[in-house]
């Protein structure tokens, strides 16, 4: 069966638009009849990734591949890269600036959530070049 590929461009520094891509994916997954639990996981993980691209990486591109077996999310940016991935993955670690914290972000929970709500998470990052995060949620 033909899978579905969705592409989104995430614009930098626009908090009002952050979350548009994950909302669209969520709507489509519901139309496909994907289980509510999987929809929830994808929505939470993708929103965190999307907002990270806005806050930390000057936007980027998201590709979502959906098949009846799994949902693959590839979030690619050309931002600063993550110097210490292990540290970044720790709950509570954040380099978010104050003005972002005042909007309620910066708890350092994004990456840990992305990990716990997906079945697989891979981070490829290079300082000064960018970061590509691949997440997978498997379907029954």
């Amino acid at each position: 069966m033909e899978g579905i590929v969705l592409n989104y461009t995430i614009s930098p520094d626009d908090f009002t638009r952050a979350g548009e891509a994950s909302s669209d994916v969520k709507r489509k997954l519901k139309q496909l009849g994907v289980s509510p639990e999987a929809v929830r996981k994808v929505a939470i993980a993708m929103y965190e990734g999307e907002i990270n691209m806005v806050i930390h990486a000057n936007g980027g591109e998201i590709t979502v591949e959906i098949t009846p077996e799994r949902i693959l999310m590839i979030l690619a940016d050309s931002g600063p890269g993550i110097p210490d991935v292990e540290k970044a993955m720790q709950a509570g670690y954040s380099t978010a600036p104050d003005e972002v914290r005042s909007l309620g972000f910066g708890a350092g929970m994004g990456l840990p959530n992305m990990k716990s709500y997906t079945d697989d998470l891979k981070i490829e990052t290079k300082l000064g070049v960018g970061t590509t995060i691949t997440m997978e949620v498997r379907l029954e």
Partner: peptide, 20 residues
């Protein structure tokens, strides 16, 4: 699930592709 595009997942996939 009234907003499902098809009767089953196969049909929904084909229909979503068609919608796109």
């Amino acid at each position: 699930p009234v907003f499902n595009l098809g009767e089953n997942m196969m049909e929904s996939f084909a229909r979503l592709n068609q919608v796109e």
